[in-house]
Design a protein around this nucleic acid. Structure first.
Lengths: 174, 174
DNA sequence: GCGAATTAGTCTCACTTGCAACTATATAGG
DNA sequence: CCTATATAGTTGCAAGTGAGACTAATTCGC
């Protein structure tokens, strides 16, 4: 008769912790700028990359559903925070980039978010923190989630190293 | 001009990882038994506690919204997996407990879920795993999330140690 | 004891999200 | 070329969820 204590069960703890942390951060962008999580992800991706990139590449790196990204993009364009750049070579896709206002928002937001992150993680010693991040990385790799090194700036889609994609076992597509 | 790499930003990573892990586990209870996450949380809590307990105490320990728990409870009762036990002492609340079928489901599910959890965490060495769990605990404490030791079986609500509730700073209520 | 405040739980509403169908464009095969 | 297939992105729809109003029952203060 095995029992299972939810409060010790890692999947549950991760869920709960992620929800709690999102909540703690959301005030920074929701209350302050009226943007939600998917919108923030789009801005963060464009801001970090520097170069324009397609909606699809944001989908890939953030693992957010394409319809969600599509709506976020539409709303950000409507508010003038990002701009579409038509790609004459392939007229299906349109590259996206931050507008002036978008960049300003991005650079205003980042220090606040980083400081919140630090605040939340301040309960860990430097060594605990580095162990923790290391563990996150290993689990991400184990699940086949994209890593910083995977996202080859804006390379044509399948330049990824073999084995990174199409892992056997776990859920690969949603 | 600070930048922020989403893929290195812990809040984002936690979100993505939690979503991914949920997905990986959900097949065990969703596809197999047709129960969703909130329903599973109710079953897990009742199963673990052994004793009947109120919906409110499930809300507290799982930090799931009360309306979500209410709906999960209604659905589980409709399917005969849990039972309501009227409490003559306080007729607002009704204690909940697993039915025979609910217990069977619980005991059938647990080994599968534990094995999935192990599988996901198998990329960590025993020492990495214990560091990781330790870090989770500290972050949870930092955010004021309930810990196993907090949940005094079924004690009247506010027997909690001082300082555990009503933390200054972070979000305390949702 | 009686009204006010509190608590358990349900219900409605608005919003978000994922899925899948759809449009438009691009590429491959014969 | 012309059909078949694949890809980028959008949209309609349905399901799930949180906020908060609401009901019912209890407890507190005086």
């Amino acid at each position: 008769m095995t029992k299972l204590d939810l409060l010790k069960f890692v999947p549950f703890r991760m869920n709960r912790l992620a929800a709690e942390i999102s909540q703690a951060l959301s005030s920074e962008y929701r209350d302050r700028y009226g943007i939600d999580i998917p919108e923030w992800r789009v801005i963060a991706t464009l801001g970090f990359r520097g170069a324009p990139c397609s909606a699809q590449s944001i989908v890939d790196s953030t693992r957010t559903h394409k319809s969600t990204i599509s709506r976020a993009v539409a709303s950000l364009i409507a508010r003038g925070l990002i701009e579409r750049v038509e790609n004459p070579a392939d007229r299906r896709e349109n590259s996206l980039q931050l507008s002036r206002e978008g960049k300003a928002l991005y650079h205003g937001l980042i220090p606040r978010l980083l400081s919140r992150e630090r605040e939340i993680l301040s309960c860990l010693s430097p060594s605990e923190l580095s162990h923790f991040e290391h563990a996150l990385t290993k689990i991400e790799q184990g699940l086949g989630l994209p890593q910083t090194s995977d996202v080859a700036a804006d390379a044509p889609h399948d330049a990824g190293e073999p084995g990174a994609r199409a892992r056997p076992g776990f859920v690969s597509e949603r």
